[in-house]
C-alpha cells in the first residue's frame, strides 16, 4: 500500500504542495490530473522519496518517510517503478541492456536477468526489438521500453509522470493499453498527466491537483 498523509513540501522558490492525502491500494489505477506546475511531479517525488515531506508523511509498503534511513531508500525504490515523459533511456546500449540495467544495478544474476527482461519486453510487446538501439525506435516504442525497465523488477506500483506527454493520441492510446495490461495483472499504477481528455476515456480513480492542492 502507498499512503500520503497530509503531505506538505515547500521549495525555496515558494512552490510546492500541501495537504496532500490519498491512498493507493493494491491493483488500483489512479490518475493525478492537473495543469503544468500544479505539483504532480512533486507528489510523485515524495512517493519515490526523492523529496521528503516538510509535514505529513508518506508510507510505501513497510517504509515511512518519517523514519526511513538514507541507506534504505534504494531498497524502498525497488518496490516501485518510475517512468517519465522523456523516457531516460541510454543510447549507448541496446533495448535488452537498457531494460536489464535495472536488474544489473541491484545485483541480480545473469540467468534471472535474461528471463525477466524477455518477460518485460513481451509485456510491452517489443520482444522483437531487443537488439535495437533506443534511437532506432519511435517515441511510443521508446516509452514502452522505459515501462519495461520500470516493471522488470515486478514492482508493487508503477509511477508514470506524463508518460504520454511527448506522444500523439494514437501512440498515447498504445501506451495506455500497456499500462492497463500491467494494472490488470495486479500492479498498481499512478499516472500523472495534464491531459484531462485522455483520462476521461479510461477507467480509474481520478485525483485533481491545482496550485499544489488536491481539489
Amino acid at each position: 500500500m502507498v499512503e500520503l498523509q497530509n503531505v506538505r513540501v515547500k521549495y525555496p522558490t515558494g512552490d510546492g504542495v500541501e495537504k496532500i492525502s490519498f491512498t493507493i491500494a493494491s491493483g488500483d489505477f489512479l490518475f493525478l490530473v492537473g495543469p503544468s506546475g500544479a505539483g504532480k511531479s512533486t507528489v510523485l517525488k515524495t512517493i519515490y522519496m526523492d523529496v521528503l515531506p516538510d509535514e505529513g508523511h508518506v508510507q510505501v509498503e513497510e517504509y515511512n518517510s518519517l523514519f526511513i534511513r538514507k541507506k534504505d531508500v534504494p531498497f524502498m525504490r525497488r518496490k516501485l517503478g518510475v517512468v517519465f515523459q522523456d523516457f531516460k533511456l541510454f543510447n549507448d546500449r541496446d533495448v535488452f541492456r537498457n531494460v536489464a540495467f535495472a536488474l544489473e544495478v541491484i545485483g541480480r544474476k545473469n540467468k534471472e536477468i535474461k528471463r525477466r527482461v524477455l518477460r518485460a519486453l513481451a509485456d510491452v510487446g517489443l520482444s522483437h526489438k531487443a537488439r535495437k538501439l533506443p534511437r532506432e525506435l519511435s517515441g511510443g516504442e521508446q516509452q514502452r521500453i522505459a515501462i519495461a525497465r520500470a516493471i522488470v523488477n515486478e514492482p508493487y506500483i508503477l509511477l508514470a509522470d506524463e508518460p504520454t506527454g511527448n506522444l500523439d493520441p494514437l501512440t498515447s492510446a498504445g501506451i495506455m493499453a500497456v499500462l492497463e495490461r500491467i494494472n490488470a495483472r495486479g500492479t498498481s499504477v499512478l499516472m500523472a498527466t495534464h491531459n484531462y481528455d485522455l483520462v476521461k476515456k479510461y477507467h480509474g480513480r481520478v485525483i485533481r491537483i491545482e496550485n499544489g492542492k488536491l481539489l
Partner: peptide, 16 residues
C-alpha cells in the same frame, strides 16, 4: 548524470 539518476531510481545502493 543520466545513468546515475536512473541508477538511483531503480534502487542501486549508494555504494554501488
Amino acid at each position: 548524470k543520466n545513468i546515475i539518476e536512473t541508477m538511483k531510481l531503480v534502487g542501486a545502493t549508494r555504494g554501488f
